[in-house]
Design a binder for these strands. Structure first.
Length: 379
RNA sequence: GGUGGGGUGGCCGAGUGGCUAAUGGCAGCAGACUGUAAAUCUGCCGGGUUCACGCCCUACGUAGGUUCGAAUCCUACCCCCACCA
């Protein structure tokens, strides 16, 4: 394959929904797609071969966490994140910007960057836009994300503006440093992130500011699903949809739940990532076409049925609900793994089917039915 | 046979006169989780009734007793454990 790196081709649309193909140095990603999260260079609990068989085309790693352990210099010495982890398909690294939000209380923000008190050993770690680029370059994922300032969903206009404007200024610094590191090579793309909290005017300004600094090979939307009500997230996406560039992939960061994927796709989003699939999997919640089940539930004690009869994953085609429940009750790690695997496959399959439906023109009615069925019942 | 220790809610185990339907833990049941400080966290957990507050019933080996009031003090009995014989 000698396709232009980072080229994105839209192959079909259905309303705002798009089916596309993204060319990356380590392979092609067909969208819409869900990207499993492997913060520390591993999708929690799963073997890379399992993640691959689940149909994952691209996975994430995290700048902040990999910087703390093992350190980007170790990863670089081991041949980069791909060789280190043996994952040979595309990868994306998040910048540590989300930790500005999630580790609030362990961090201090200045214009220069963010000082974190390491949750590992308490040592002080200063992350700047430049440093985030250097770390991600050393890690060597196909896509690096800008270092951004994420504010909570309840953030006031003033606070959201501050985070948004700072993110724009940091973007310029990210771009400059990334350009120096890349030196004209096409090994790694840098993607910007739209911020602005729940305020439509700020979101627009953020996007405009980003596009002025472009061109970009992809644009992300960040700072959603961070405490704001779901209709608010939809409204923000609705506001952005008409002004987002059509020729590059749109990546909704950190979202989601199954319904979020369909709602996002319907609003023109192409890529998603979320820890919920694996975290809920470890905590015993499995997503089904008909809703969700708590795998520990006493109701499954003697159920010989598959976890999700409609699923083709290794968990559902192999084990009974009764056995999965048993594994959770006795705290065998196999249980956590199997439900994580199912949830990941569930979201990936949802992306696959959305893609088929967009291409054959049945996306919208299918989406409506799917959501009604999924949200109408909790088993 | 003797001496000492002990019997508490499904289990383990605090509690030695009122603040005790009784600390904790486990088990059980239910819920939360969205760019991973999470194999984590939260709630319920004697029975009945109530949306809830509450009210009623039953309960700390058994049976009596002391006391305004007992899981807590006294008596007898039953059972368990340790050591001695």
């Amino acid at each position: 394959m000698t396709a232009t790196p980072f080229a994105f081709r839209v192959e079909g649309t259905s309303g705002l929904a798009r089916a596309g193909t993204l060319e990356l140095p380590h392979g092609t990603v067909r969208t819409p797609a869900f990207m499993p999260v492997g913060t520390h260079g591993a999708v929690r609990g799963l073997h890379p071969a399992e993640v691959r068989r689940a149909g994952a085309q691209i996975i994430l790693g995290n700048t902040y966490h990999l910087h703390l352990r093992p350190g980007e210099e170790v990863v670089a010495q081991m041949g980069g994140l791909h060789r280190f982890t043996t994952w040979d398909r595309p990868m994306l690294t998040d910048s540590g910007g989300f930790q500005v939000f999630s580790l609030e209380g362990l961090r201090k923000i200045t214009e220069d960057g963010v000082t974190f008190t390491s949750h590992v050993d308490g040592s002080l770690r200063h992350l700047t836009p430049e440093k985030a680029m250097e770390i991600q370059w050393a890690l060597g994922a196909d896509i690096a994300m800008q270092f951004d300032h994420v504010v909570p969903g309840q953030a006031s206009w003033e606070l959201a503006e501050e985070g948004m404007e700072r993110s724009l200024r940091w973007l310029a610094r990210c771009r400059a440093r990334h350009g120096e590191l890349a030196g004209g090579t096409a090994r790694q793309a840098l993607w910007p992130i739209v911020q602005g909290g729940t305020h439509d005017d700020l979101r627009r300004r953020s996007l405009e500011g980003i596009l002025r600094q472009g061109p970009w090979t992809g644009v992300a939307i960040g700072g959603l699903s961070v405490g704001e009500p779901k209709p608010v997230m939809h409204r923000v996406l609705d506001g952005l949809a008409p002004v987002m560039p059509a020729e590059v992939p749109r990546y909704l960061m950190g979202v989601g739940f199954p319904s979020d994927l369909l709602e996002g796709i319907a609003r023109g989003v192409d890529l998603f990532d979320c820890v919920a699939a694996t975290r809920n999997g470890r905590h015993g919640t499995a997503w089904l076409a008909t809703g969700r089940v708590n795998v520990r539930s006493a109701a499954l004690r003697t159920s010989d049925a598959p976890l999700d009869p409609e699923c083709d994953c290794e968990t559902c085609t192999t084990f009974s609900r009764s056995y999965l429940r048993h594994l959770f009750v006795v705290e065998e790690i196999l249980g956590l793994r199997l439900v994580s695997l199912h949830n990941i496959r569930f979201l990936i399959r949802l992306g696959e089917e959305a893609r088929r439906r967009i291409l054959d023109g049945t996306f919208d009615p299918w989406r409506r039915e799917w959501l009604a069925r999924h949200e109408g019942s909790t088993e």
